Simulated assay, not measured.
Amino acid sequence: MTWNLPNILTIGRLLAAPFLAFAFVFLPRGLADWVAIVLFVGAALTDYIDGYLARKWKQESKFGAMLDPIADKAMVVIALMILVGAWDMYPYVVFPAALIMFREVFVSGLREFLGADAGKLQVTKLAKWKTTAQMVAISLLFAQGVFEHHFWANTVGMDDGIVSSVLSGNTEDEMGLWFLRTGALATHYAGLWVLWIAAALTLITGWDYFNKSRPYLVDEPDA
């Protein structure tokens, strides 16, 4: 194992993955949402930075190449698990999340079976777009939790009539409720749309990987 900055960033991203779950277990919801968005966005940025630095500084290694996709998948799978729970099994989150996790398990098993031949199957640009879409979708859905927490925290002590009056513009919005509600709605719908796009790309790239691996799955004819 080579201890260089790109590999250290990858290891940090891998270790950050379980802390997403720990945040929602041990911290109050508002703080947990902030921790989740910071950890996940930070992990998404290091996913780009460590690869860029490894290429620029010519520090690419087998250890980094092995660990990088593991760190990505660990972060995505744990984040999806948290979102499914936080959204109370909301079907529009559960279904794409299940498709994404199914593909990741299937492709990981296929790579394990192929062994050394798995390295011959190159990562496509579409697969990189898939990863980007997953990261963006999950970041947006975590951001929704942040907006919602602050919205409800700022409406403590207000009755529904006052909140409606503020949101309609009839009462001065001293607490920024309109901004928080708009942010929650925008991240909600954008996050769901991008999550479904990510699920579609996940299935397409999974099928492409399986199709390319088929020549290595053919049984040798009996002598």
Rank of each mutant, 00 (worst) to 15 (best):
T2F: 11
L201D: 04
H188A: 14
D47Y: 04
T155I: 04
E172I: 10
G145L: 05
D173P: 06
V77M: 13
L31W: 07
A97P: 00
L217A: 11
L14D: 02
Q59E: 07
A116H: 15
R29S: 11
E112Q: 13
N4I: 10
L67G: 07
E104L: 01
G12W: 06
E60V: 14
P6E: 07
E220K: 13
L20P: 03
F19H: 07
R55E: 04
Y48R: 02
S61V: 00
A36Y: 07
L180H: 05
P91T: 04
G42W: 06
A71F: 02
T124P: 01
K73G: 14
N7I: 06
T131S: 00
E174H: 15
F19R: 04
V136N: 08
W196L: 06
I162H: 14
V163S: 11
L14P: 01
D160E: 15
K56A: 09
G30Y: 03
K120Q: 10
Q134Y: 01
T182L: 15
T171R: 13
L141S: 05
M158R: 05
W193R: 04
F19V: 02
V25T: 06
I82P: 00
L83F: 09
K128R: 06
W193G: 15
T124W: 00
W152P: 00
Q59L: 12
P6V: 08
V38P: 10
I11K: 03
